[in-house]
């Protein structure tokens, strides 16, 4: 009997700790599939963030380095500069990347560091139980914006891809989503292209992946996927911002 679906080698055979309906697991799998398909597991080093995925070093079969909150792009810079032949990716959430780590992400992109950042945006802090994130939508209720995010009190959400696209060093910038199969397949294509851009030494690449957090959004998993589609996508438009036509 032919095997048509199996666990990617780059993903360790271990049950993940993520909540039911969370899309981190899907995103991990997409990364692992790309490492398998490009046959680069043995040369890849990943950087784990602080947040729900702090211990994803337990899930990837490649070498992994756990970083301080927000500092993953700086840590990835150090790894890549030390061993330029490694493929280096940093996995970051929205608090990690767009709040405490804004300096590190902006400057890694500005320098054109040859790393790939997987930016998981679920518009909320998951690990610390549902506080407002820099990407929380206007009127979205969180534990620290209990009456909804109000621009006059909390300011506005940050559109990371749009912001980083203005930097010459960022050569591949794309926003994708995980709310249905078609979009998940697109997400994988974007991750693969971003890694190929790194391997071709073209510059900094980032893939922003809209993701769900049923637990902290207070929804069931299906409604949460619907919420990505109906609420997040209109504000965070999907698509390639830069690097679509790069030859890799």
């Amino acid at each position: 009997m032919a095997t048509v679906f199996k666990r990617p080698h780059a993903l360790i055979d271990k049950s993940m700790h993520y909540c039911p309906g969370c899309t981190h697991g899907i995103i991990h799998r997409l990364i692992a599939e790309v490492l398998d398909e490009l046959d680069i597991e043995g040369t890849t080093v990943g950087v784990s963030p602080v947040g729900c995925t702090y211990n994803n070093y337990e899930y990837f079969n490649c070498d992994m380095v756990q970083a301080a909150h927000g500092r993953a792009p700086a840590v990835a810079t150090g790894i890549k500069r030390a061993n330029p032949d490694n493929v280096v990716f940093a996995y970051q959430g929205d608090g990690d990347l767009a709040a405490i780590g804004t300096a590190e992400i902006v400057h890694a992109a500005a320098r054109g560091e040859k790393i790939t950042v997987i930016f998981v945006n679920n518009a909320i802090y998951g690990m610390t139980s549902g506080q407002m994130a820099p990407t929380t939508l206007i009127n979205q209720v969180t534990t620290t914006s209990p009456f909804g995010r109000k621009p006059e009190v909390h300011g506005f959400p940050i559109k990371v891809c749009e912001m980083l696209s203005t930097l010459e060093g960022a050569v591949f910038v794309e926003r994708v989503s995980t709310h249905d199969v078609k979009n998940i397949m697109n997400a994988k294509k974007a991750i693969k292209k971003a890694i190929q851009v790194q391997r071709a030494n073209l510059g900094f690449g980032i893939v922003e992946i809209l993701s769900s957090c049923p637990t902290n959004w207070g929804m069931n998993p299906v409604d949460a996927l619907g919420w990505i589609k109906d609420k997040m996508v209109p504000f965070y438009p999907l698509g390639n911002f830069k690097g679509k036509d790069l030859e890799v």
Partner: peptide, 16 residues
Amino acid sequence: ESEIAAINMVYGAASA
């Protein structure tokens, strides 16, 4: 971009 970034680059390179 900062001393914070610098020490974390050190962290990355030392890991390597």
